[in-house]
Simulated assay, not measured.
Amino acid sequence: MASKVELVVEVKSSADKMWTALRDSTELFPKIFPEYKSIETVEGDGKSVGTVRLIKYAEGVPLATFAKEKVEVADDENKVVSYSVVDGELVSFYTNFRVTVQVTPTTKDGADAGAVVNWTMVFDKTSEQVPDPDVIKETAAITFHSLDDYLLKN
């Protein structure tokens, strides 16, 4: 039976700015986050459904040295992207590992007030001994907050 983990992060950056940064993560993340050694597109155009990206993590990142992810949903209009991890250390711990990210604008008194990032991870453990991927959720939270800080300064 699949397990589901959800995370909601409020950011000060506009939904458009946050979404653009997330969609440009192949180039942007290795520049601003030391835990990403590199991200390269190995199939597709880097953004649309069917794209496969190879992510290499820096030494010391828990659980993984690399991951290959395949884009399953890419909906720019609704600011939703979903990808499955198809290779790397994570697949030996979790099967059907899929992450979905949606960015929704927020308003206050009719004005743009930033955005909410909804992050959902669905997975099946390969065995009961495998721990929940809490570190991945924690890393996602840190990444969204750090990306927001970066966008507010640039």
Rank of each mutant, 00 (worst) to 15 (best):
A58K: 06
A141D: 15
G46P: 09
G88I: 05
E40Q: 10
A141T: 15
N96I: 09
L90I: 06
K4G: 03
E138D: 14
S92I: 04
S84M: 08
F66I: 09
V122W: 03
T106Y: 00
V42W: 10
D148S: 00
K125Q: 02
V86A: 05
S13C: 04
L28Q: 04
D109S: 04
P131E: 13
Y83P: 04
R53M: 13
Y57V: 04
A140G: 05
A67Y: 08
M1D: 11
N118C: 01
L63W: 08
T95P: 00
K56C: 11
A140Q: 13
T120S: 06
A111P: 01
A15N: 06
E69R: 14
F97N: 13
S84D: 13
D134M: 14
V99W: 06
K12H: 09
E43V: 15
H145D: 07
P133G: 01
G44S: 00
K68W: 14
T104N: 12
G60W: 07
Y94W: 07
A140T: 01
K56L: 07
G60K: 08
F97R: 05
R53T: 13
L151S: 02
A64C: 12
S14R: 00
V61P: 07
E128Y: 00
R53A: 12
E43K: 11
F33A: 08
T106I: 11
Q102K: 15
D124I: 12
D45A: 07
D149Q: 11
W19T: 11
G50T: 04
P62Q: 07
T51S: 11
D134N: 13
L28M: 07
D16S: 09
R53C: 12
A64V: 09
K4M: 05
A21E: 12
Y150D: 12
F66D: 10
M1W: 03
M1A: 05
T143Q: 11
D16T: 07
G60I: 06
V81E: 14
I136H: 08
S48L: 13
V85H: 07
T120Q: 05
L54T: 13
P34Q: 13
E138R: 08
E69G: 11
V61N: 13
N154Q: 12
T51E: 07
A21W: 06
V5T: 10
V101D: 00
V103F: 02
F97K: 03
I136Q: 02
V101Q: 04
T104R: 01
S25P: 06
T107W: 02
F144C: 08
E10H: 02
K4A: 10
V73W: 12
R98W: 04
N78C: 05
V71M: 15
K12Y: 01
E59W: 03
T26K: 14
H145S: 11
H145L: 12
W119M: 05
A67F: 04
D148R: 02
V52C: 11
K47H: 01
G46N: 10
V49E: 06
V73A: 09
D24G: 06
D87V: 10
A67S: 14
V8G: 06
G46K: 15
V103C: 02
E59D: 14
D134A: 11
M18A: 03
F29Q: 08
P30Y: 13
V52Y: 00
T143H: 15
L7Y: 01
D134S: 15
